[in-house]
Nucleic acid binder design. Structure first.
Lengths: 217, 217
DNA sequence: GCGGACACGTGAAAC
DNA sequence: TGTTTCACGTGTCCG
């Protein structure tokens, strides 16, 4: 890009307009026409100020030119929008746990990576409690599990005992209690047993966890 | 704001310039001067296009005018920036767990809401292990605690047993294991005991947790 | 001197 | 009515 890089300084110096070259030659000459002259001046000034303000809000400016300012601001807006999308995505990823009970149906569809998902909701309903267990195989020797149950003291301890007994090592786990309900999400590493050839005996794991749920410590 | 709301349509119709009113009167008249006429035209066109593009990237536009477009885009950029800040803040809040061990010093300063923070790092160091316990009172009957320790099987179970024994109800808890280390963050509700008048016996809680750390199940 | 970028003053249109 | 915004053509600067 060639030409004048910097903004051209206004012809007038102060607030009031200064005589231009034309008017210098023949001072008042015809003077006349300028119904909206100053108004137009103010308008230009305003737009100029806005553009400078816009420029000050954009971190990276390739060029001082007006078009470049607007262009850069567009790309910046795009970057910001994408960043917001990514962040909310990440946030929702981590917020998977504190879902409302009603929203679980959605989760059932979203999280179904490799293997089948065992949904015991109906079976739990027969027992009169709103319990729900989901198991997913998310890797060669990794499981993802989610448990919703009533808040019962000691159930978490028993859960941990079962996990340890089954040779499942907790990689990470979150527990949240709200309104008398408990939600547990966890990824576990399979240390021993449970492996039947290439796959994991999800049924056995389910049974053990069910036992924990049913027990009243 | 009075005047022309919509952008004025260009005088010329097609690509090539169209005669303006001045030139209509006396066709070729003097024709002459326009060394950069078309260049200027292209420049205006470009800026106009950029502004329209900018407008298309801003969801809320109060007015079609140029200055308004720029102004709205500024406010939009501000909103986006603030949103990004808030989201990253939230994200870091939730990511408190998988902090590097070296970064704990920062956390010690950041999270110090109401009561004193008990840092046992030196004491742990004497024992030759990189263990760290922090307790904070975050409410009338609420504690926030953070434990970093070696990854030892069964330590989590024992931790849960201690919590239950002390009458501390887990509100929420996260456990993360990485590189042989375990990080536990949890908020707990104080159900019974532990209360000494208005404050909580953090020392006693600390001792119990310390016992869990030292035990080798 | 050519091309790009700017401020300027103006007529017209929209409200 | 007047005010506001626009596109236009021009002079001018700079690399």
């Amino acid at each position: 890009m060639g030409g004048g890089n910097r903004f051209q300084e206004p012809v007038r110096i102060s607030r009031r307009r200064q005589v231009r070259k034309d008017e210098e030659e023949n001072e008042v000459n015809e003077s006349f026409k300028s119904p909206n002259l100053e108004a137009e001046r103010r308008r230009r000034e305003k737009l100029h100020g806005r553009l400078m303000a816009l420029r000050s809000h954009v971190p990276i400016v390739t060029n001082m030119t007006k078009a470049s300012i607007v262009e850069d601001s567009i790309t910046y807006i795009r970057e910001l929008q994408e960043e917001v999308v990514n962040l909310t995505e990440k946030l929702h990823e981590m917020e998977e746990a504190p879902l409302e009970l009603d929203e679980q149906q959605q989760t059932d569809q979203i999280i179904k990576p490799e293997h089948e998902t065992i949904d015991l909701k109906e079976e739990m309903k027969k027992l009169g409690i709103e319990e729900n267990i989901q198991l997913c195989k998310i890797g060669e020797r990794k499981l993802w599990l989610k448990i919703t149950t009533e808040k019962k003291p000691g159930i978490f301890t028993k859960f941990m005992e079962v996990m340890r007994f089954m040779g499942l090592e907790i990689i990470d786990i979150t527990l949240t209690t709200s309104c008398g309900a408990t939600l547990i999400c966890s990824s576990v590493q399979i240390l021993q047993g449970l492996c039947d050839g290439d796959s994991v005996d999800l049924e056995q794991t389910k049974e053990f966890l069910l036992e924990v749920m049913r027990s009243n410590p």
